[in-house]
Design a protein around this nucleic acid. Structure first.
Lengths: 228, 228
DNA sequence: CGTTCATTTGAGTGAAGTCAAACCGAGTGG
DNA sequence: CCACTCGGTTTGACTTCACTCAAATGAACG
């Protein structure tokens, strides 16, 4: 097993930031070990093309996984929330950017050690399998939305998704990301996202507080609008 | 372990079709065991909502994995080619349709037995992990295309993808699916797919024989048009 | 209080969608 | 062997939803 020292400063993009808490965790669960590291808003956890040296578990905050096209277009693949893993897979290099949308804490796990252990420990390997399966389901569901639904359907679905995941109560949704992040997730532009939110407001389906907090006034209507 | 008999006729949608070849395979590899079953074009291997009793490996032909929306809109998630697995995951029920685009042969593997064995055999679990990881990469790449690219970019990328996978030589691509399948994969309409193909023809980038065979005349140009 | 960055709103455009008709190739049966 | 059908594909005319460009508004912070 790798020592904590080897987990610090290995990624150039966050290398400048010292780990806030170094916890050489003694838990028997591989998923619980590793150092925790703080990453500021807009900083990268890793970049497209980086060697995939670590897998990260989000402890706090939200990380956007995205692909940047040559001309600046960007598709967000998913938002990773506390408890989610990023950097899983079998490729030698990352093929996406992982960028903090706000201040974030991640737990760093050595990818090599994880996979080596998984080749001996079936239950660990199965957990990896289940974790990627969940990501797969999420990616496919987003694909359906982006490929087939209107701006309104996509946004309504997005808000419902957040409210279901929500730590707080079901009809108050905190948006921990910018409009541009939502736009790039849903395959829309900032302007379309904004106009659609405005439309939902004028329809009295939602109410927006300080731009970042959405109150769902009419959940049934929102469900309809999402097409389900 | 389940015997071959238990792998036959368990799926209502193909239950009428007797297995063409019953092969109680003695291979030590779980992935090689199971009966092979023939499925005609347009028949379902499984449906959205079905219990996930089996995992299938495509032996021959192409299967479209898709999600049908209430009003008839459809998003194809991926085309599964020989060697690919469909039905992997951890959910109790399927959440997509799997439909043969042409005559197909699939090998049927009991999902329960597979997962039970994986919980004991780490190398099997790791193979499952890698298989799903590959699907995840494919789904994400399609998502980027559908979310950010123009009709021309999507179609050019699709043709390049086929030519790279191609069994035959690199600049002849067989299309084993209808225009509507391509449209539903790329998040376009039949008409847009057709018009875009026509544009590629008039640009002398491709040539189309009997609607189903695409000859790539100018691969470099096609790469450009795909945005890479 | 001014600067900066994010969001909203407005006006006009365009890429892809819709609806409708023509076309084409493969079968089928007179 | 040819006329007819039938599914799939192509083409045409028109519409629309979301994009682009541009300006106004608002919130956060020194």
């Amino acid at each position: 097993m790798l020592g904590a020292a080897e987990l610090v400063g290995t990624n150039a993009h966050v290398g400048q930031i010292p780990a806030v808490a170094v916890l050489p965790d003694v838990s028997s669960d591989r998923f619980e070990r590793g150092t925790v590291r703080r990453i500021e808003a807009k900083e990268h956890v890793f970049c497209d093309g980086d060697l995939r040296t670590h897998v990260f578990r989000i402890e706090e905050g939200v990380v956007a996984l995205s692909k940047l096209l040559g001309d600046g277009r960007r598709q967000i693949i998913e938002f990773a929330y506390p408890g989610d893993y990023i950097g899983l897979g079998t490729l030698r290099e990352h093929i996406f950017d992982a960028q903090a949308t706000c201040a974030v804490k991640v737990r760093c796990l050595s990818a090599a050690a994880l996979e080596q252990e998984a080749s001996r420990d079936a239950s660990l390997a199965l957990r990896l399998y289940k974790a990627v399966s969940a990501e797969l389901a999420a990616a496919r569901s987003l694909l359906v939305s982006v490929g087939q639904q209107s701006a309104m359907e996509r946004l309504a679905g997005f808000l419902l998704g957040l409210s279901e995941r929500g730590e707080t109560n079901d009809h108050v949704v905190k948006l921990p990301m910018r409009r541009s992040d939502i736009a790039d997730l849903l395959g829309l532009t900032i302007e379309t996202v904004s106009r659609t939110i405005t439309k939902l407001r004028t329809m009295k389906v939602i109410e927006v507080v300080r731009g970042t907090e959405v109150h769902i006034l009419d959940g049934d209507r929102l469900l309809e609008l999402a097409g389900r």
